[in-house]
Structure formats: structure tokens, C-alpha cells
């Protein structure tokens, strides 16, 4: 299984790096409806947080495609690491509390 997980992570990273530049830039279903039905303006300038990589663009990288791919790779690794970390911390806790295993 470990090999399978590793391969699947590689595939995910490849998707983020090499497929994401080909992603359609058209509005998605919800954005399109918001545009057509006249409520897209509600979202303009309403973002309440600042983010390190807004809109999947790695800051400080000039080439747009590269910036997107790097943000995708970073996000994929962050997601893997966060889920893994949450799981590990949680297991340790539940073992201590529940005494399982």
C-alpha cells in the first residue's frame, strides 16, 4: 500500500504541475450564474482574509504558468501534510485517551 500511496501522490503532483496550466479559465457554474443573474458584484472586494497564494499563483514568480504550477504543487503537498498531521496527532490522542492498541 505504501508504494500505492507514493505513486498516487506523484500522480497528484503531476496533475497540479502539468495539467493545471491547461485548466479552463472560464467562470465555473456558480460564477457564471452569478454573472448572468446579476449578483456577481456581491463578491467583489468582499474577501475578508489575505492569503499567501491568492488564486493559485505563487508570489514572486514572473512566468504565469510556472507560478500556477508551483502553487499547485505547494498546495498538493500542504494538503497531504495537513491531512497526515491531523491524522497522526489524532491517533496519538485517541490512543492515550481511549487506550486503543
Amino acid at each position: 500500500m505504501k508504494k500505492g500511496v507514493f505513486l498516487a501522490l506523484l500522480v497528484s503532483l503531476a496533475i497540479a504541475a502539468f495539467l493545471s496550466p491547461f485548466a479552463s479559465t472560464s467562470p465555473d457554474g456558480l460564477e457564471r450564474v452569478a454573472e448572468d443573474k446579476g449578483f456577481i458584484h456581491l463578491s467583489e472586494g468582499k474577501q475578508v482574509v489575505k492569503s499567501p497564494m491568492p488564486d493559485y499563483v505563487m508570489p514572486g514568480v514572473k512566468n504565469e504558468t510556472t507560478a500556477g504550477s508551483l502553487a499547485g504543487v505547494a498546495g498538493t503537498l500542504i494538503t497531504f501534510a495537513v491531512m497526515y498531521g491531523v491524522g497522526k496527532i489524532y491517533i496519538r490522542k485517541s490512543r492515550r485517551v481511549g487506550g486503543r492498541q
Partner: peptide, 28 residues
């Protein structure tokens, strides 16, 4: 845990790849 982690990573990556559908709209 590794399965869930890699599933999360895959979903994150796959969600970046918007595919075009009809009439200038995309989905992921």
C-alpha cells in the same frame, strides 16, 4: 491515514483543473 492524505492531495490537485463545458463555462 496515508490513504486519506493522498486522497486529499489528489482532490486538491484535481480541483485545480477546470474543464470547459458548454457556452464559456467551466467546472471541476
Amino acid at each position: 491515514i496515508p490513504k486519506m492524505s493522498v486522497m486529499a492531495a489528489f482532490i486538491f490537485a484535481a480541483q485545480m483543473v477546470n474543464f470547459p463545458i458548454a457556452g464559456g463555462t467551466s467546472g471541476h
